[in-house]
Design a protein around this nucleic acid. Structure first.
Length: 226
DNA sequence: CAGGCAGTATTTCAAGCTGT
DNA sequence: ACAGCTTGAAATACTGCCTG
């Protein structure tokens, strides 16, 4: 290890030397070209880019990756964000393209009467055993004619949210790991119903917030130790 | 001025995490 | 069972300062 460190230092010293700096500046040499292709060049040109345009719907109509465009496009008043709905879903599996929502629950943090909305949903497919074990919801429980499908629930959900929404304020949807799990499923179900997600719905991933808070907490602990 | 050294910035990659 | 994101470590490139 020590040898590797010394070697790297030596290389750094060579490429950091004034003669090489001169060549790089005046003769167009780059250390990457003088080394092996795929090191310097690769690092500068194959970096993964976050293209927000790809968040918009594709030609086929599907959201890929499954982050709604409104995730970034909207802004809101931090002091008075409007209606905050904490929600969670249970599904038949992980992949939103193949699996379906089997339970939907939300709670309006402003409280009051009827501040919760909860329903089982008929997925019109079997619930895998591993999923049933995890969420205690079996095929027999949801694949019944008296359990509504998502298309049946959607108009009720939209009406419910509209009733809870403060005039002129957006609706803030909060869920844990929403970005990767809950929202893609929700988007997929909206798409199956040929419905549009209201433009004033914003989504917040509490997992991201938790990670940021953890970092801040670590920082404060560090300051205390100093 | 050239070389050496130390530190910083950037990128890549693998492992772990996250949800049902 | 799966796929995408985050994180941390390692590798690499660059920059500034010091010395002879």
């Amino acid at each position: 290890m020590l040898l590797v460190l010394r070697f790297n230092l030596l290389r750094n010293n060579i490429w950091g030397s004034r003669s090489v700096r001169f060549l790089k500046q005046h003769a167009g040499f780059s250390s990457g070209k003088l080394l092996q292709p795929g090191t310097y060049e690769k690092r500068h040109f194959t970096t993964k880019l976050t293209d927000t345009a790809s968040w918009h719907k594709t030609d086929s109509g599907s959201c890929s990756p499954a982050i709604p465009p409104l995730w970034l496009q909207q802004t809101f008043d931090r002091d008075n964000p409007g209606t905050v709905l904490v929600f969670d879903i249970e599904t038949t599996g992980f992949l939103h393209a193949d699996h379906r929502i089997i339970e939907f629950a939300l709670r309006d943090l402003s409280g009051g009467k009827n501040c919760t909305f909860e329903t089982l949903i008929n997925p019109e497919r079997n619930v895998p055993i591993y999923a049933a074990k995890a969420n205690k919801i079996t095929t027999e429980l949801v694949c019944r004619p008296d359990v509504p499908r998502f298309s049946d629930v959607l108009p009720l959900l939209l009406a419910y949210v509209q009733r809870r929404q403060a005039p002129g304020k957006p609706v803030l949807w909060v869920a844990h790991n929403a970005k990767q799990f809950d929202i893609p499923f929700l988007m997929q179900e909206f798409e199956r119903c040929s419905a549009q997600v209201p433009a004033d719905w914003l989504f917040v991933d509490s997992l991201c917030l938790a990670r940021k808070l953890k970092k801040l907490d670590d920082f404060s602990v560090l300051l205390q130790e100093i």
